[in-house]
């Protein structure tokens, strides 16, 4: 940990973002192996894990940028990033947004294990008697708990987004196939949207295009 309190706080920040990922990763993989969901959702949830990790990395980067604001000079960055290599390693997690990298899921777990080992190290020091201060481990475990929830939230958010996008794609596909144009804002005969529409619905079909609200009467 070093004697610098500032360094310790930075380390806690990294633990808060990344240390919970390994547990969430293996937990979700374990659950998806043992549960069968509709339409192969288990595989999809597993596939978004590296993206969830990238999302966490982006949030971490955001926090660092916020901390640096408004002085983004090299001197300030050097001053702020006391554990340079660890900080760079943490920021590198945004690379998992790149599909080519996120395909190799094991890379994300290897990346996050570095931070989990920091918790493991403090636990070992406590057991080995190198550290008499139990508060360090107590802090670690609190932050670790936060990290687990944060990572779980990231996976949940991405899973929901994935589900919504998939649903929308499906409905688009379905509408194209069945001719139901409701997703485009089309008004079908019998569907009275305004009084004037009601007057003409027996003769006309009004089509409203959502991108420019232009209307077409058929």
């Amino acid at each position: 940990m070093g004697n610098n309190f500032f360094v310790y706080v930075q380390q806690l920040e990294m633990l808060a973002f990344f240390s919970g990922y390994p547990l969430i990763y293996f937990l979700i993989r374990f659950l998806t192996h043992n549960v069968t969901l509709k339409n192969g959702w288990e595989a999809r949830i597993v596939s978004i894990l590296p993206f969830a990790y990238a999302l966490i990395g982006s949030l971490y980067l955001g926090l660092q940028l916020k901390n640096l604001y408004p002085d983004y000079t090299i001197v300030n960055i050097k001053y702020r990033f006391q554990q340079t290599y660890l900080n760079i390693w943490a920021v590198m997690s945004i690379l998992f947004w790149i599909p080519a990298i996120s395909k190799k899921q094991v890379l994300s777990i290897l990346h996050s294990l570095i931070f989990f080992f920091l918790v493991l190290r403090d636990l070992f020091f406590q057991f080995a008697g190198f550290s008499q201060n139990r508060d360090i481990l107590k802090n670690d475990m609190r932050i670790y708990t936060v990290s687990i929830f944060l990572n779980l939230a990231a996976v949940t958010v991405l899973a929901l987004l994935s589900f919504l996008l998939s649903f929308r794609k499906k409905s688009q596909h379905h509408d194209t196939a069945t001719g139901d144009p409701s997703w485009l804002g089309m008004t079908m005969p019998g569907k009275k949207t305004t009084e004037s529409d009601a007057k003409t619905d027996s003769m006309q079909i009004k089509v409203t295009y959502p991108h420019d609200n232009s209307q077409l009467y058929l």
Partner: peptide, 26 residues
């Protein structure tokens, strides 16, 4: 591969539980 993942998960859970118990000072 699945078996290794199970072992790793169990290991992580054990480490986490140990951490929580050890850090519990009341």
């Amino acid at each position: 591969k699945q078996r290794s993942e199970k072992i790793l998960l169990a290991l992580l859970v054990i480490i986490s539980i140990t951490g929580y118990i050890t850090s519990c000072t009341h």
